[in-house]
């Protein structure tokens, strides 16, 4: 049984907020999270013939499958590829207001995550914190970073990798696992 527009609209009304939070926890950007939500539901309508479930719960599970692919696609391409949105001729949306931005961060508990990142950076060895600040925050290229620290470019790359791995290990208990859950 394919997915009807009526059922999709019903699922949207009931779960859109949940999907936005799902995306925001994975891409850390409320604007991108809203775009991914739009693309997921649009893609669900476009590909509705491949839906084999019946109930709204079946549809939600199916949509989360699409959502996970959308997240992977975003990290691969570095942007939201809105093929389904464009195919349906959906108008470009406005930007989020400050209140909406904060509300999505609240739904995704991004504020807590941000505080945890800041705390973990504070606790890291100074060498790791410094190299992450230069590479991630100031977005320095490796040659410039290496010159700044007076080390070789190869050493700079290795130091950034070590620092990122160390930070990931520290943050792992606080990162999302399954949809709708937060460790």
């Amino acid at each position: 049984m394919s997915l009807s527009s009526e059922q999709l609209a019903r699922v949207y009304d009931a779960h859109a907020r949940e999907f936005v939070a799902f995306f925001a926890r994975r891409v850390y950007d409320p604007e991108v999270a809203v775009d991914l939500t739009a693309e997921t539901f649009a893609a669900a309508f476009v590909g509705g013939d491949s839906f084999t479930g019946k109930t709204d719960e079946d549809a939600v599970r199916w949509l989360y499958g699409i959502a996970k692919n959308q997240v992977a696609g975003f990290w691969r391409a570095g942007q939201v590829e809105q093929r389904a949105v464009e195919r349906l001729g959906m108008q470009q949306r406005r930007g989020l207001t400050d209140e909406e931005y904060e509300r999505i961060e609240e739904l995704a508990a991004l504020g807590d995550l941000r505080r945890r990142v800041a705390a973990e950076l504070e606790a890291m060895p100074a060498e790791h914190a410094e190299v992450l600040r230069l590479r991630v925050v100031q977005e320095l290229d490796y040659p410039v970073l290496a010159a700044r620290l007076e080390i070789s470019e190869q050493t700079a790359r290795a130091r950034v990798s070590r620092a990122l791995r160390a930070l990931a290990v520290r943050l792992e208990p606080y990162l999302p696992t399954e949809e709708g859950s937060h460790a």
């Binding site: 999709l8 609209a9 907020r17 809203v34 739009a38 349906l88 001729g89 959906m90 406005r94 207001t97």
Partner: peptide, 18 residues
């Protein structure tokens, strides 16, 4: 989150057109 309401309206209109 009014943006979700607007997005929903856009989606519904697009589906109806299609």
């Amino acid at each position: 989150l009014p943006i979700l309401g607007e997005l929903g309206a856009t989606l519904t209109a697009a589906m109806a057109r299609a």
